[in-house]
């Protein structure tokens, strides 16, 4: 099966064609090695860092997964993050460890900026 994608590694925006032949991934249309890497990762297991916020009793903090997680798990992961109940969270706190067995932790990236009243 052939898949077309635009490489996002630089402004050139190469139009890549990615093809899986047996277990080998063939990339064409790229002008450099970065395009090949990008296409391979997008085809085998596209991953993304997920960021969101959590409403605690003390205010709204921001969080992220400390590693990229599989794209297909993002929908489920955001729900889990939404279910977190906490009185107060601080910078660096691990909110969920090893979320959905991805090996990534959800960590707090920002304290509450504003005083909060529910």
């Amino acid at each position: 099966m052939k898949t077309n994608m635009i490489c996002i590694m630089c402004p050139l925006g190469c139009e890549l064609t990615v093809e899986k032949v047996d277990d080998e991934i063939k990339v064409s249309g790229n002008n450099c090695i970065r395009g090949e890497k990008y296409a391979t990762s997008e085809l085998t297991e596209p991953v993304r860092v997920l960021t969101s916020v959590i409403i605690t009793k003390n205010g709204v903090v921001s969080v992220k997964t400390d590693k990229p997680i599989p794209k297909k798990k993002i929908e489920e992961a955001i729900k889990l993050i939404g279910n977190v109940k906490a009185d107060k969270l601080n910078f660096g706190d691990v909110v969920i460890s090893n979320i959905l067995n991805t090996g990534a932790n959800v960590v707090v990236t920002r304290d509450a900026v504003l005083d909060f009243k529910e």
């Binding site: 860092v49 960021t51 921001s62 992220k64 910078f91 990236t109 920002r110």
Partner: peptide, 9 residues
Amino acid sequence: ELTGPEYAF
């Protein structure tokens, strides 16, 4: 690779 708040932190 950082988030905006981490960069600020």
